[in-house]
Design a protein around this nucleic acid. Structure first.
Lengths: 347, 347
DNA sequence: TTGACAGTTTGGAACGTTCCAATTATTGGA
DNA sequence: TCCAATAATTGGAACGTTCCAAACTGTCAA
């Protein structure tokens, strides 16, 4: 019900100083006398003054706002990513516009344009499928720092933070081979994405390296979701020469695969080895606990945000490509614990 | 690398009109001649002009920004809620500051203050635990519309959108009773929250109504997470007079409960009835598919956003309390399908 | 020829801040 | 006592937009 229009001039008048002095106090300048600072501070609290950052930016044109656009907030990997960014952005005194593109490139373009009009200092983008370099060129040409995260956009020279999908997939496959598997499938994910490609190549390279079959039929793509995992594993079970283990595109697919296996009375982690990718929170507490390639999404989010803030503050324009290293977390779904039990019995 | 400082004056000069005319074009005013509009439009595109909204609302002081603060984005219920809000906010031409309070009231206060300085037109808040009416009073007194969602703050007269926890819990319990269960537990959730209290009362009222035991020991609280569900079900299994079914505080707890039951070789949906709350996306595809009280978080998010926008546009100050109705979705984890099978056999 | 009127266009004063250059007050040394 | 140096304060011009009142064009009726 009150007027929200207490300005620096009102404060100045009430404190008996000039608006310049109030401004100085607001910025914590050391030029102003201790007593004055205290008096102005008191008046500010008393009047319920709220700083108007838009007005400030108008003059100094460097805002404390960053943009964050993610492709799918309902996927916990990306939600974690967002939370990681949120943490460092917040503690740096920035605030974020945050939007969900829902994998829709047009929508993504709209929100980025809107954020630009509102004066963001930089953008972290986990691009929607089908994002092209041309979509982002005007933005980067205007000198606003951009950091891509999780996914890359071919042909665009900007910073990025991605996980080492190739190494992770290869490590997972080597682990399965070590456990005695000789026929291994790759399950789930859309095969037209860069991330899919990278993980799938890691999978294939590790098979070839071990002299095993790496033929096309072992790669079964599907939606990168739990439902997609169910579908993919059904196709796998229908194969003539049925694999005995699978590396999944991500954890959601892996959970779906476990569901599908169970419906067919095949127990994941006992009769069939399953490995996921991403290490979402549920992976640890699921039954069986999911063996997965951990990419620490929160950590990636934090690094991406740090990188962006660095670029904003330095005004530097060297694109930097960070590859988040990745680590195989062995739990139960791959069957490692089963083998240990067996070995203990034969010993 | 370019100058980002194309202003309305530059456009005006290039188009041979005054800045006022350009402004009129930008606002789509009908006052301006068609030919002029086209010419100005062309120049705008050619120069790559970007509208400076901060400058604009400095003058007109009604921004197109809303604030959204969520207590835990990593919980898919709240992520869905956020996505629902995002949808309507975006299509109304607004953009959102969005932050995660991580259940930390201090942090929440900080981000709200920051959003205020940046000039938000309204706030949707899913309050962190421990948020008090006093925390929010200055904000609502300043005349900025606030909508609480999912959780309420006692003693604060603002609009809210919450789900009907009492009715949902009661419906779930009645369903279990109908399936033949006579001893039913309530699992998970912190017992000092309003949401817990409401659901738990629904649970208890339904038991009393059926003349069943509703004693304290049947309510086992824990963290509202998957891990909390595992812990709670372990305590339940240790009880002397062991229940045969449980209503869980939310779906995460229900998943944890299923995990815990399986570890004890008890098959959820066969040997024990489990019902969740919230209907997160995974509920449908889990094995067994989770019977749960569906609250449609996206829908709640959408309604909350619509309510906020309505208040912003009308300048009205009537607090409105929406109670999202709730619906029991019967799937497999409660054992309903098992009973149907049994009945078919005896018939 | 004049005036009224509608259709367009325009200069300049806001909006709330920051920043610069200038001013005043205070101190210490010669 | 005076000067220089330092400390503290200040007025006014920006920043990029909107909005108001005023002004310019024609057209048409009187």
């Amino acid at each position: 019900m009150k007027q929200s229009k207490v300005t620096v001039v009102d404060v100045a008048r009430a404190a008996g100083v000039s608006k310049s002095t109030v401004s100085l106090v607001l910025q914590g300048s050391s030029l102003v006398n201790e007593a004055t600072r205290a008096r102005v501070g008191a008046v500010i609290r008393e009047l319920g003054y709220v700083y108007n950052r838009s007005a400030a930016n108008l003059r100094q044109s460097k805002s404390k706002i960053v943009g964050i656009v993610v492709n799918d907030l309902t996927n916990s990997f990306f939600a974690e990513l967002a939370v990681g960014m949120d943490m460092v952005v917040q503690s740096a005194g920035y605030i974020q516009f945050m939007a969900n593109s829902a994998e829709n490139a047009d929508r993504q373009a709209e929100v980025i344009a809107s954020m630009r009009e509102h004066g963001m200092a930089g953008l972290i983008l986990s691009p929607a499928r089908g994002t092209t370099a041309a979509d982002l060129r005007p933005l980067v040409d205007s000198g606003i720092p951009v950091v891509l995260v999780a996914r890359n956009v071919p042909g665009l020279k900007v910073s990025s933070v991605v996980s080492d999908g190739h190494a992770g997939a290869a490590a997972a496959v080597r682990h399965l081979i070590e456990l005695g598997h000789r026929r291994i499938a790759f399950l789930g994910g859309f095969n037209d994405t860069a991330v899919f490609d990278e993980r799938m190549r890691g999978f294939r390279d590790a098979l070839v390296e071990a002299g095993l079959d790496a033929s096309e039929e072992l790669v079964i793509s599907s939606a990168p979701s739990r439902a997609g995992g169910v579908a993919a594993v059904e196709r796998l079970l229908a194969m003539a020469d049925r694999p005995t283990a699978a590396l999944c595109f991500n954890d959601a697919v892996a959970f779906g695969a476990c569901d599908g296996l169970r419906s067919a009375r095949i127990e994941p982690g006992v009769d069939f080895g399953v490995i996921g990718f991403d290490d979402v929170i549920e992976a640890k507490t699921a039954v069986p606990a999911l063996t997965t390639v951990s990419v620490d999404p929160q950590g990636m989010g934090r690094r991406a945000a740090q990188l962006l803030l660095k670029q904003i503050n330095s005004g530097s324009f060297e694109p930097e490509a960070l590859v988040a290293s990745v680590r195989l977390v062995v739990r139960e779904s791959c069957g490692a614990s089963q083998r240990m039990k067996r070995e203990a019995m034969t010993a």
